[in-house]
């Protein structure tokens, strides 16, 4: 039953090889979807191009369905899957900072690495900026440690928060996702016409 400790199952070299292959596939797909281009990423925020929303949302929904079906049939122990603990207010503030950085810079951290790997200058500068930002955070976090660790809600999931069965939450998300993407496409075409999307 998963998740598996790859190092224990196939050794350290085997685990690193798997990580390398997964990373390769992830980067390959992001680049082929056009996520190495900051113009495409920024266009998301103007509703001019919904590729980012479609790809990411679809990936999230497919992953959710796979994870919970795997749990349902005993292939995966969901209790052992890492869910980032929710620190509510730090998460909101961090999300705001990241959102502003995303639209200013045209990248999020992962896509900046995709762009940098194809030697796009804006991506390379974004990666450099991220490194400086991460270093600065590390050196100053002690000053706002109380806030950073505040409002800890623990391992909070949608199904626990809504007190609904997991299947119902996943179904609801898939239905909402399909509607949002379909309506979003209609809105985009009304505003910009058919040819605007990548």
């Amino acid at each position: 039953m998963g998740p598996f400790d790859l190092s224990a199952e196939i050794g350290q070299i085997g685990a690193w090889t798997i990580y390398l292959l997964v990373g390769f596939a992830f980067g390959f797909i992001l680049e082929s979807a056009g996520f190495g281009d900051s113009r495409l990423l920024a266009a998301q925020f103007y509703w001019r191009d919904l590729t980012v929303l479609k790809v990411m949302f679809t990936a999230i929904l497919v992953a959710a369905v796979l994870i919970f079906w795997s749990t349902a049939i005993g292939w995966l122990d969901y209790d052992y899957v890492w869910v980032n603990p929710t620190y509510l207010w730090p998460g909101i503030v961090g999300g705001l900072i990241m959102g502003v950085g995303f639209i200013f810079g045209g990248f999020c951290p992962g896509t900046s690495l995709v762009g940098a790997s194809t030697l796009k200058l804006d991506a390379i500068w974004f990666v450099a900026g991220s490194a400086v930002g991460i270093l600065s955070f590390g050196e100053t976090v002690a000053l706002f440690d109380d806030f950073w660790h505040s409002s800890n809600l623990g391992r909070l999931t949608l199904q626990a928060w809504l007190e609904l069965p997991t299947g119902m939450v996943v179904f609801g998300l898939v239905a909402i996702g399909i509607v949002v993407l379909w309506v979003g496409d209609i809105v985009r075409r009304r505003i910009y016409g058919d040819s605007s999307e990548h």
Binding site: W69, T71, A72, P165, G167, F171, L173
Partner: peptide, 11 residues
Amino acid sequence: ASAGLVWHGQP
């Protein structure tokens, strides 16, 4: 697939 999850449920 997600509707199937509603029907099957979690263990």
